[in-house]
Design a protein around this nucleic acid. Structure first.
Lengths: 260, 260
DNA sequence: CGTGTTATTGACCAACATCAAACTTAGTGG
DNA sequence: CCACTAAGTTTGATGTTGGTCAATAACACG
């Protein structure tokens, strides 16, 4: 995938996205020791029981938090993209309630807890910015909970597409007319709390309705507005993205030209 | 309800539960300005669109975060009990993605953001401890997501009972054989992503199985072990409780006496 | 080309939702 | 203390969404 230039620069960019870091914070972030770890597709960085001594900064690839329920069923709890730090909690809490895995090939930077803590000590606002990561993360979890709790399969899939598209778009991982979502239907099912079969049929329905056009795992959007409506999507909970120019996706060029 | 002696003492106790606060942190916590607000049952403290200028410390009562989905359906996102601070995020993020409401009569202490920020500046570890609140909170959200995504109605209800009982027990809001859960079945349904009717039937099933004995909103447990199993409940994600002596509930006395 | 993973289909079924009505309970005012 | 009321709980009948099982088709990769 997108081979990231420099882990420290990625972190700095992400910090700037959630709020202006002080000079000290930026300097501290740049001095953090990082060990890069390459992760093969479908492998876990942290197991559910493992107590990782380091905090992960995702550099590259598509990661998920996931957990097993009742021994045989999986629930994917969140998606994580480059710049995310999905196990910040290990800085303060030894227990982990989820596994962190890569769906695609990817890489993470491992930052020793002690070093990160020291950096926060020297630049207190760095702690605040990382705390914001946690809030942004929690807001997305709540959105997923509301979706799984109260939306139909059809709405859920559409909602997930909207959310994930917005997040990936903010990172330049999409084009304007669609995106490559590197998830199998089984993985979609595990994220949405549905069965594979039903995800398959729901995708077909979305295609028949003309809301998405899929080629393999690339999904093109024909009408963003309608997709939003179908998913009952309101992206205002994605505050992490709001410091960037608001990515408002218009219907793709061809359609709009027909209109005018 | 349980008229809490002193808001500052409640906060201090809660801080001690997540980790030993420094003397400075305790001192700062004790000096925080707090304005007590009484909340009538079924009233919101913060609306979904409202931008509250203060952070809430729950003093008394049973609160929920909730949100409307698709205009007419409600999803309850979390439960909040005395000592919780459910809108800490407002310290860093102006947007709110949920409403905060009381189910019972209750009260909250409102802490001005500026004061809380100042306290954190003076006692950096106070920020860390509050950050831990956020982590504990997020872990519970993930557990709910997994439950709603992958468990049957029967399991979900049992799981929620286990979790909520454990949390309330740590605050001394239960007795050993059961607890008073001040939720209507409609509210349970909104928390679990089910319909009222189905919640009602599921409760009946739990009663027939002999797992709970309800009198109004008091629910007695006859066999904690079996209830845990029914709900596929493993409480290790409730780390906020772990600094206290681990509350391990044995089957109620009568039953155990019969055995021996 | 095989071989394993992923996607798709059909038939069937279970869990849960919806609708509508009756019943209980807890308050409230007379 | 007794209606009266509103909220909450319970029930039955019925419909729908989404799950399960099992087989086949389409790919992807060595």
């Amino acid at each position: 995938m997108n081979q990231t230039a420099d882990p420290h620069e990625l972190l700095a960019t992400r910090l700037r996205a959630v709020g202006p870091p002080s000079g000290t914070a930026e300097a501290q972030a740049h001095q953090l020791p990082m060990r890069v770890l390459h992760v093969p597709p479908r492998h876990d960085v942290v197991r559910e029981d493992g107590r990782l001594k380091e905090c992960c900064l995702i550099l590259d690839g598509f990661f998920v938090r996931h957990t097993m329920v009742g021994g045989d069923q999986r629930q994917i709890l969140s998606f994580h993209l480059p710049g995310d730090m999905p196990n910040l909690h290990s800085l303060h809490i030894p227990e982990t309630d989820f596994a962190l895995g890569a769906l695609t090939a990817g890489s993470v930077a491992l930052i020793p807890q002690a070093a990160l803590r020291a950096a926060i000590d020297k630049a207190p606002d760095l702690g605040d910015l990382l705390w914001r990561f946690t809030f942004a993360d929690a807001a997305i979890s709540r959105a997923w909970l509301a979706s799984v709790g109260r939306r139909s399969a059809y709405q859920r899939v559409a909602h997930l597409f909207c959310e994930t598209f917005m997040r990936m778009r903010a990172l330049g991982l999409t084009d304007e007319a669609g995106f490559m979502l590197p998830l199998t239907q089984t993985e979609l099912a595990d994220a949405l709390g549905l069965s594979v079969v039903h995800v398959n049929r729901t995708l077909q329905q979305l295609r028949h309705e003309g809301l998405i056009v899929s080629r393999g795992r690339y999904h093109g959007f024909t009408d963003w507005r309608r997709l939003q409506e179908a998913g009952d999507f309101d992206g205002s909970y994605l505050f992490q993205l709001e410091n960037r120019p608001l990515p408002f996706v218009e219907p793709p060029v061809r359609l709009r030209e027909q209109v005018s």
